[in-house]
């Protein structure tokens, strides 16, 4: 999905946990997330902490979308 949407010309950020799969499949902007069953959350934390964590991840995703790249890039920080 990610490649076809990008092929149509949209910048796409793939936010997922298992980076190697995303890399193999060929996403270009990749942002690592927390865990497979809860990429944007951490059930061990309080709802407020969880939301803060989620916001930080989404901000990272938006930053990746605004970054010019020439090749596959994993945005680690």
């Amino acid at each position: 999905m990610v490649k076809e949407i990008e092929r149509a010309g949209f910048p796409v950020v793939h936010m997922c946990t298992i980076i190697p799969i995303s890399q193999t499949v060929g996403a270009n902007r990749i942002v690592p997330t927390i865990a497979i069953p809860h990429p944007f959350g951490d059930p061990t934390k309080s709802p407020e902490e969880e939301k803060a964590l989620r916001r930080a991840l989404v901000e990272k995703g938006l930053k990746a979308l605004q970054t010019e790249i020439t090749e596959q890039t994993v945005f680690n920080d």
């Binding site: 949407i5 149509a8 949209f10 910048p11 950020v13 793939h14 946990t17 997330t33």
Partner: peptide, 17 residues
């Protein structure tokens, strides 16, 4: 992608588990 184009979307966040 076709639908996003029609809706004048600028960028996409795609999440995976």
């Amino acid at each position: 992608a076709v639908k996003l184009r029609e809706a004048a979307v600028d960028a996409v966040i795609l999440t995976s588990t």
